[in-house]
Design a protein around this nucleic acid. Structure first.
Lengths: 102, 102
DNA sequence: ATAATTTGGTTTATAAAATAAACTACTTTA
DNA sequence: TAAAGTAGTTTATTTTATAAACCAAATTAT
């Protein structure tokens, strides 16, 4: 049985902003909305929508609280999110390493 | 001057099917429509559209001729396309190699 | 001969995604 | 107390991706 050449890419992760968010979260314990916003150069509106999608997919946890009188949203990646990221990276490699393909 | 953490990903290439097409073409001299269709599992309609976009972007050359009485479309990647692919891969790596990021 | 099927696509219509603009709900400062 | 700032969310618009329908010609079956 022959291997599939191009594995499907998780559409949740195959998005520049969502991938950047997950990529950031993989490296840290937790990140604030504005930290992510600055690192990714996203607009607040776009970021809000994409965080919601990652949450709906179960890839991140979102915590809303108040800090110094202001609302504060923090995110952390879930085990599901980590697994999805790893799977995505492996799938993607099938598209990138052309010269080393059998 | 600090490096940008997440470089923009070329939207022409950040599409599963178009990336698969380019990935295929990088490895070969030339490929027929149906060869690409089979390798990528794309529908003919979708493939037709995405080939047109890659052509419009100057990433591939499209040649239409007849073979054994039937129309035959072949594609080959251009230098521009190769450069774009290499740039895309490098940019993408900034999103993937989390643990090795400074 | 001609009707049905197949080949090799393109075009058009629909669904989904990404993004920007506008808005909400406060808080702080002038 | 009015204006400006913080921290987001919601809605509307644009762009993409995809599927479905279509086209033109060739082949095969009747």
């Amino acid at each position: 049985m022959t291997e599939k050449m191009f594995k499907d890419l998780d559409p949740i992760l195959h998005s520049q902003l969502r991938l950047a968010i997950i990529s950031l979260l993989v490296g840290v314990q937790e990140a604030e909305f504005n930290f992510i916003k600055e690192k990714t150069n996203a607009t607040a509106g776009n970021l809000s929508v994409q965080i919601q999608k990652l949450k709906d997919a179960g890839y991140i946890q979102v915590n809303k609280k108040f800090k110094d009188n202001y609302p504060l949203t923090t995110c952390r990646i879930t085990r599901t999110g980590i697994n999805a990221f790893e799977t995505y990276v492996k799938a993607l490699q099938g598209y990138l390493h052309v010269s080393t393909r059998p």
